[in-house]
Design a binder for these strands. Sequence first.
DNA 1: ATGATATTTGAATCATTATTCATTATTAGA
DNA 2: TCTAATAATGAATAATGATTCAAATATCAT
Lengths: 197, 197
Amino acid sequence: MRTKEGNKEKDILEAAIKEFAVSGYHKSKISKIAEIAGIATGSVYMYYKSKEEILHKIFNDIWENLYNELKKLTENPTIPPTEKIDSMIDLILDEFTQNPELALVIVNEQNNFQNKSLPNFTQYYEKFLDLATDVIKEGIENKTFSENIDLFVFRYYILGATRNILSHWAINPKQFQLNKIRQGIKYFTKNGIIEHK
Amino acid sequence: MRTKEGNKEKDILEAAIKEFAVSGYHKSKISKIAEIAGIATGSVYMYYKSKEEILHKIFNDIWENLYNELKKLTENPTIPPTEKIDSMIDLILDEFTQNPELALVIVNEQNNFQNKSLPNFTQYYEKFLDLATDVIKEGIENKTFSENIDLFVFRYYILGATRNILSHWAINPKQFQLNKIRQGIKYFTKNGIIEHK
DNA sequence: ATGATATTTGAATCATTATTCATTATTAGA
DNA sequence: TCTAATAATGAATAATGATTCAAATATCAT
């Protein structure tokens, strides 16, 4: 009996991230992804049912991971909410910045699929947002955060902001200093633009 | 000599916005757009060179308009920067919320095209951001805004945030109160999440 | 009313690509 | 060494849909 050599499932996923980042999901060809992965076109279908399943796996992996990390963090009652928010931003930045191509895929493709595909296409993403929202609630009860915060706005504001910045950074990672971006996002999220004396 | 009846160029554009919003650019068919516009498939090509040109026109129109509006606003030296920021947010919200389908198209498709297409695919978008950045500079010199603000981060933070919120609102406009969103965005932008005493 | 000119039509073309599948290669166990 | 089972291949299939174009239609000027 022949056995699978290497880790083609992973090779395909990494090749797909590269190709999706450069060409966008719809313009990416399975044959090109196979070529990058160093296998035959047909072999892709040994590991994934369809092109869309590959994309789904990419989303799922990253948000499942981020959700689990955030869960560990938020469950710790000794960390104050402000610090949790900082750590949450670090989590996202660490995850994406170690792989700019992945950042591009998430930013460019996710919206299109979370609306139009299966309902659970981005279930971990939503769970991640639920946890983040809980942190804000905790901070409001705490009086650390302003009670003026609208939870719906918050939920999509910070992540939309962060993702958009990352997408511009990812196009040309060397052009911008990541640390300044990191500080900038944290500062903005906490203080906004106004000078508070 | 036969003359053009009605305003098919506009009909096509509006039909395309509807179809792109529902199906996404890549899954939208020219034949369906023509059907919505009430014309024959081939007639689309009397008015637009290609499917991509239609999308380009959608982006260009909206950002050209927003750029011109923002220009009027920012050129007025009597308005303080804080108020300019509020008005800028109003501009964007007004433009997008009177047409949720347009909001969806912009949010879902723009990223993919500003990276991969002709360099001037979104020239007015960039000019719009330049003006917004000038307002921040003015406010920093003014001491109204904090000098900790990183201009690159700002440039993409606020707009990314706003666009992301709008995209979620646009999926189901009736579910959320627009005014709360408006207030929420303004509050966040200026104050962040922390309670400033 | 007629011709000239431009618009409109929609079926046919043509290219593109995701997916399939018959074939070949490989290896574990007997 | 041989067999059975699965992995891997890549050319063929089949569907899709953007774009073209020859024919039909409408309007204006004369």
